[in-house]
Design a protein around this nucleic acid. Structure first.
Length: 327
DNA sequence: CGCGTTTGACCAGCGC
DNA sequence: GCGCTGGTCAAACGCG
């Protein structure tokens, strides 16, 4: 599906992804988080189990994020952000690079792959440019053609209620583009991880249906630790955390793996402006009080954010079915 | 000076 | 083939 067609889907249909995924709602002091995990069907059973684990009442929100319940796969990790209102929708996309599903892939999934593969071409050809690499020029960009379809990077999208567009996640990002989005008054911003040889990208845009909501889509996996010692926001964010929280806590891999994110590890979520703007202390989410969890089947439509537009852009067809209501 | 942002231009893919 | 749209590039610029 073309981007346009995708947008048409986004904005004209009322497809509700929550009908197809497993939903987990979390209530915590400042709001509610709704997570939707969309996983490869070939591993659906284990992932379902993992999500079930997340639904256990004894798990804190941070633990939910941490995915510390044993067999939870790194690909199924989620990063949450929040502000004082802390309402987060999460949709996770597992790409074929991590797992090649046997099941049929919907058009939306296929197109998401094409989109990212297009980006991959640039990654390979141009990735070194802005980081001071050789002088590969525009011509080079043209060399890669359609035949070289690259594996799709894992995509991961979530929605956050926030006044700030660009949410701090501990990594350093360089903005490389901004585009007006069809049917939306709000532009979409494109960021790349500034770490050398890290190809992770993310897109950030504000929901036009709910301007208080920011939609963030990550693509790819970090191949490095959270740059906690670099100047800028990471270092500044580190100042807000207890000393031990800024230590790298896991090997580099997954860009969105909360294991690797000190903010998440601490259950804190920094919401900042641009990458050059230190996060605001008041925007931190304090997880310590009465973080509670709800059963996995228990979700409230009124808590859901109205716009799943961008999310659909990365929706694969291989999804888990929602747990049946038991009450 | 290094790094990040801005922004117009360019390209690919798609539908018509 | 043309137009539209999303995604990316890269020069110019800003900031600390």
């Amino acid at each position: 599906m073309s981007d346009e067609a995708r947008d048409d889907l986004l904005y004209t249909h009322h497809h509700h992804p929550f009908h197809e995924g497993i939903n987990v709602n979390y209530s915590f002091p400042t709001g509610t988080a709704t997570a939707v995990s969309i996983v490869d069907s070939s591993s659906s059973s284990s992932s379902a189990q993992n999500l079930q684990n997340f639904g256990l009442p004894h798990l804190s929100f941070a633990e939910f994020l941490h995915g510390s319940s044993g067999n939870y796969d790194a690909r199924s990790s989620a990063v949450f952000f929040g502000d004082n209102q802390a309402s987060v929708d999460v949709k996770e996309i597992v790409g074929e690079s991590a797992h090649t599903p046997n099941c049929s892939v919907s058009s939306s999934s296929t197109e998401a792959e094409e989109d990212s593969s297009k980006g991959e071409k640039d990654k390979q050809n141009k990735g070194s440019e802005y980081r001071g690499g050789e002088d590969s020029k525009k011509v080079n960009k043209m060399l890669k053609k359609k035949g070289e379809k690259k594996q799709r990077e894992p995509k991961f999208a979530f929605m956050t209620r926030s006044e700030v567009d660009h949410l701090e996640d501990g990594y350093r990002w360089r903005k490389y583009g901004q585009k007006a989005v069809k049917n939306s008054p709000y532009p979409r911003s494109y960021y790349r991880c500034t770490t050398q040889k890290c190809t992770v990208k993310k897109r950030v845009e504000r929901s036009f249906q709910d301007p208080s909501t920011v939609i963030t889509t990550y693509e790819g996996q970090h191949n490095h630790h959270v740059p906690v010692t670099v100047r800028g926001q990471a270092a500044a964010a580190g100042l807000m955390l207890p000393p031990d929280s800024v230590l790298p806590i896991a090997p580099p891999h997954v860009g969105l793996n909360p294991h690797h994110n000190p903010f998440i590890h601490m259950g804190q979520f920094a919401v900042g402006g641009s990458s050059s703007t230190p996060p605001v202390a008041s925007a931190l989410y304090d997880p310590t009080p009465t973080t509670t969890t709800l059963p996995i089947h228990h979700y409230h439509h009124h808590q859901l954010l109205p716009d799943y537009g961008l999310l659909q852009d990365v929706v694969p067809s291989f999804v888990l079915r929602q747990e049946p209501h038991s009450q």
